[in-house]
């Protein structure tokens, strides 16, 4: 009976080794940026794919949204508080799309460095509060970064 118990012990050790390896690889994966989207800094530094469509996420820069014509074309800038990227989009923007708001866009980079979005999705943050509270919060943090954008 003893060899069987010993064998079971070996198997458990092998199993733990396997789990350990798995954890190590997972941690490694999270250290190497395992992202399905890119930040404006990545784009400016040339880390984003040139030929392919990808997701670009960031905050809409205050005062950067402009509608040059009567059609649905919108131009705005996205930032991650490091670098900015100009974005063009033709279509209807979601309700939550505002300046200073986080958005995720999907599209391709044009050779001139402008990101042509096929889709714009507005991200809402995890804060929920009545408007009055939000207003008073804004007044308090007017000098620093907005409270909701901790990144």
């Amino acid at each position: 009976m003893r060899p069987i118990r010993r064998q079971r012990l070996y198997l458990i050790i092998v199993m733990l080794l396997g789990i350990g390896t798995a954890v190590a690889f997972t941690l490694k994966a999270f250290n190497d940026n395992l992202m399905f989207f890119f930040s404006p800094s990545d784009v400016v530094m040339g880390k984003a794919p040139a030929r392919q469509a990808f997701r670009l996420g960031g905050m809409v820069v205050d005062g950067s949204v402009e509608r040059p014509g009567d059609d649905l074309l919108v131009r705005f800038k996205l930032t991650d508080y490091g670098k900015d990227v100009a974005v063009e989009y033709t279509g209807i923007l979601p309700d939550l799309f505002r300046e200073g708001q986080g958005v995720v866009t999907k599209g391709r980079l044009r050779p001139d460095g402008v990101f042509v979005a096929e889709e714009v999705l507005a991200k809402h943050d995890e804060n929920y509060m009545p408007p009055e509270v939000a207003g008073s919060l804004k007044k308090e943090t007017v000098a620093g970064r907005p409270a909701s954008e901790e990144k």
Binding site: T21, F25, N31
Partner: peptide
């Protein structure tokens, strides 16, 4: 990163 994830899956599944 992706390959590490796959390796992690493999190790986990083997174990």
């Amino acid at each position: 990163a992706q390959l590490s994830m796959l390796a992690a899956f493999l190790a986990l599944a083997l174990a």
